[in-house]
Amino acid sequence: MTTVLGHNQYGKAETRVVRITRDGDTHHVRDLNVSVALSGDLDDVHYHGDNTKVLTTDTTKNTVYAFAQDGGIASPEEFALRLARHFTGSQPAITSARIRIEEYGWSRTGETGHSFVRDGGEIRTAQIRLDGAGCEVVAGLRGLVVLNSTGSEFRGFVKDPWTTLPESRDRVLATEVEARWRYGRHDGDGEPDWDAVHRRSRAALLDAFADTYSYSLQQTLYAMGSRVVDAGPEVDEIRLSMPNKHHFLVDLAPFGVANPTDTGAVYFAADRPYGLIEGTVLRDGAPARLPTD
């Protein structure tokens, strides 16, 4: 044999599950997209087509639905932990489980407790990886679009023969935040209030973006990540990916129209190409474990 099997995993991807909890006339919605990946002692199915150790992907889908009913969904992190512990604890061949969850938010609207409107583009994320070394929890969000209409400048940068970007002392700063923060490994005791830490981390990101006078998007990224880590002891590491959503002042001079920034200006919002600023902020002394890609 000239080949050997490397790392492998299997499972059911993107199982959509919506759990509606009724508290009298007030209802609560948790809307998840759940992806399960399992690995372990599965050489025989790859080498010989022997399925005796294979828990079907259809079964993993049904387990997601059953667990959503039996035990509910307290948070994406709690639900993912429960699934991972079930798969690794009930199947001798399965030694590692990775559960990825996206949550879509809903807010109440109207006078009733049962009418909702889907929250904008922001998605809450959670990933659980459970294996023999323990359990790693990474949570976060993506699609959080923010904009400062002033309080930002960009100047003093390197200039070479191909530089055309003018320096700016007052610019629009806009980005779409993707953030992943690591709780580290957990043994099941003393787990944090996942929802509370998510709310706190999201608020810290927004507050830091609003409060920071920005000389560069890199500086703003570091300020936002630091605010999350400093907000509490649970988060040791956060990785941020922040595209620069450029807003260029429109040249209206050919039409004889002024476009002054001091009283109100018109900008062109460019969607591509864009600068992409990424970085990781760590608690001092904490190891870096989040992937860099």
Rank of each mutant, 00 (worst) to 15 (best):
I101M: 05
D25E: 15
T112K: 09
E103M: 01
S35D: 06
D193N: 12
P254V: 00
I123Y: 04
D58R: 02
T88S: 02
G6D: 11
S39D: 13
D119Q: 13
A126C: 14
R129H: 03
P254Y: 03
E136Y: 12
H114V: 04
V17H: 09
A203Y: 06
G72R: 08
S168N: 13
S35E: 03
A174W: 02
N148Q: 14
L217E: 10
P161G: 13
N148P: 00
D236L: 00
A231L: 05
E237A: 05
R185T: 12
R82S: 04
A84L: 09
R108P: 09
A286K: 08
G264N: 11
R142K: 14
T220D: 10
V29Q: 10
H198Y: 12
R100Q: 07
T261M: 12
T2Q: 05
G121V: 10
G143W: 09
T52A: 15
A204M: 09
A210Y: 00
E176G: 05
V29W: 09
S214Y: 03
P192R: 00
V266E: 12
D70Q: 12
I99G: 10
G225I: 02
S39Q: 07
L290Q: 07
G6W: 09
T261C: 11
L32A: 01
S90E: 13
P273N: 07
R169Y: 09
V29G: 13
V45R: 13
T63A: 07
R85K: 06
T15P: 00
A66V: 08
A139D: 04
E176K: 05
G11T: 04
V18D: 03
Y65F: 13
D236A: 00
T15E: 06
Q91D: 12
T63C: 06
Y274I: 10
G232T: 02
G256A: 09
L282C: 11
Y47A: 14
N62V: 06
W181F: 15
T21V: 15
D23R: 15
V64Y: 07
T212V: 11
V18S: 02
H198R: 13
V34C: 07
Y215V: 15
Y215K: 14
E178H: 01
T63V: 04
I73S: 00
H246C: 06
W194P: 01
L276Y: 04
V281L: 04
A133F: 04
E191Y: 01
E136G: 02
T21N: 14
T57W: 12
G89W: 08
G11E: 02
E102K: 01
I101K: 00
T175P: 09
A265D: 02
L42V: 10
V266T: 14
R169E: 14
G188R: 05
Y267I: 00
A258L: 11
D271G: 08
D187L: 10
D189A: 15
L144F: 03
R82D: 03
G71N: 02
R155T: 03
R129I: 03
L217H: 04
V146T: 12
R180W: 03
S216W: 00
R118L: 13
H48W: 07
V17Q: 03
R283T: 06
P76V: 08
V250Q: 11
D131E: 01
F79A: 07
D50H: 06
V158T: 15
V235Q: 01
T59F: 03
G279V: 08
E122D: 12
